[in-house]
Simulated assay, not measured.
Amino acid sequence: MNLVVIGGGVGCARFVMGLREHVRRTGGRDRIDVVVNTADDWWVSGLRIAPDHDSLLYALAGVNDLTRGWGRADESERVSGELAAWGTAPAWFTLGDLDLGTHIARTAWLREGLSVSEVYRRLGARWDLGVTLHPATDAEVDTHVLLGDREPIHFQEWWVRHRAQLPATGFTQQGIEQATPSPGALDVIAAADVILVAPSNPVVSVGPVLAVPGMRQALAAASAPVVGVSGIISGSVVRGMADACLAAIGVDTSAEAVARHYGARVAGGLLDGWLVDESDAAAAAPLNAAGISTRAVPLWMRDAGTSARLAADALELADTLA
């Protein structure tokens, strides 16, 4: 089967690792492609930084920092300190030296004229990932946060420096109106047997992918069932500050509210199916009535086994919808 995942960041990485483990345990014949959010990318010290992509790359390669949850393992930060001392990088955005090697390579290739898709291929070729990563778009569509009467700021400043504590009134992706889905993203969506929406931040990781002009149309036209996995359990985010993002766009922090935010595909939305945690089983009946086939299963991805089980549950739901 051709399995396609949409998302970005740590939650997506854990889910994709579980999907890869499930595929390995069941014979290893399925292909996995991930359409990755690019809208939290930005420029620092003349380097193009891509946090959602790199979280996936490092985790799938087995070189990620499991303690911090981001960046490379066994890091040093001497160069980042020098950049801050020279005033070319903010002191609140720390990059490890190994991580900077990735950003330097990425930027060098971009300045040579390679597309973001081509850069993804070169970065992914270093390790045996068992997964192919595709940018949602090759265009730059950085997310900025709207702050009412204040000037908008880049998402990374709001997220990392201010820890999402500044009251936001919305999010915008600069230049997204002129963007198009990357050719690789369109190809794998069209060929997919199952499309899975990862338990990523619905607003700033999944939302920008869906906002690329042509992406929703491609998903609507896909013959594959679309099954999403909630990143909200018992009214709380599993990781990060997605609750602040949801509040900014007027969506409650609940598995049911996020599913309704995505919408049922039969009604012009995204989802055919939705997995919620067993603690949120009460959401199944109203969501089923709204046209989103919903099952309650264990969602906590504590290790390879529980992550693989969650992936299997998603595929089993997709199978009933095919």
Results as ranks from 00 to 15, higher is better:
E256M: 04
V194Y: 01
D40A: 14
I6F: 00
L133A: 05
N37M: 10
L210Y: 02
I176N: 03
L57C: 13
P286D: 07
R163S: 02
A322N: 14
A289E: 15
L310W: 13
W300K: 15
V145K: 01
L57H: 13
A283P: 14
L196Q: 02
M17C: 12
D52K: 00
A84Y: 09
D272R: 14
A281C: 06
V227F: 02
D187Y: 03
R126L: 13
N2D: 10
W109A: 13
G8F: 01
L271G: 08
R309C: 09
D30F: 01
I249V: 15
R25T: 10
L186W: 07
T294C: 14
P183N: 04
A259M: 10
G124H: 08
R150T: 12
A281D: 00
A311F: 09
D187R: 09
A264H: 11
T169M: 12
G7M: 13
A185G: 07
W70Y: 14
T169N: 11
N288D: 06
G184A: 00
V258E: 01
H53D: 10
A283G: 11
W86N: 09
L287P: 14
L110S: 00
A259P: 15
L114M: 06
V206H: 02
L270K: 04
L114S: 01
A185Q: 02
V194P: 05
R216H: 00
L287D: 04
A304E: 15
T137F: 04
T137A: 01
A192Q: 02
R161Y: 02
N2F: 07
V206M: 03
A242I: 11
S223F: 07
H162G: 13
A322V: 15
E21H: 01
S76K: 08
H162M: 14
A108M: 11
S279W: 08
A179S: 00
A284G: 08
L275D: 11
E77P: 00
P51V: 12
A139T: 04
V188C: 06
E278S: 14
V188P: 08
W109F: 15
V16F: 04
M17V: 05
T172P: 08
L146F: 05
L271F: 11
G113T: 09
A85E: 02
D128S: 10
T306K: 08
T38D: 07
L110G: 05
S236V: 11
W92F: 03
N288M: 09
D243M: 03
L83W: 05
P286W: 07
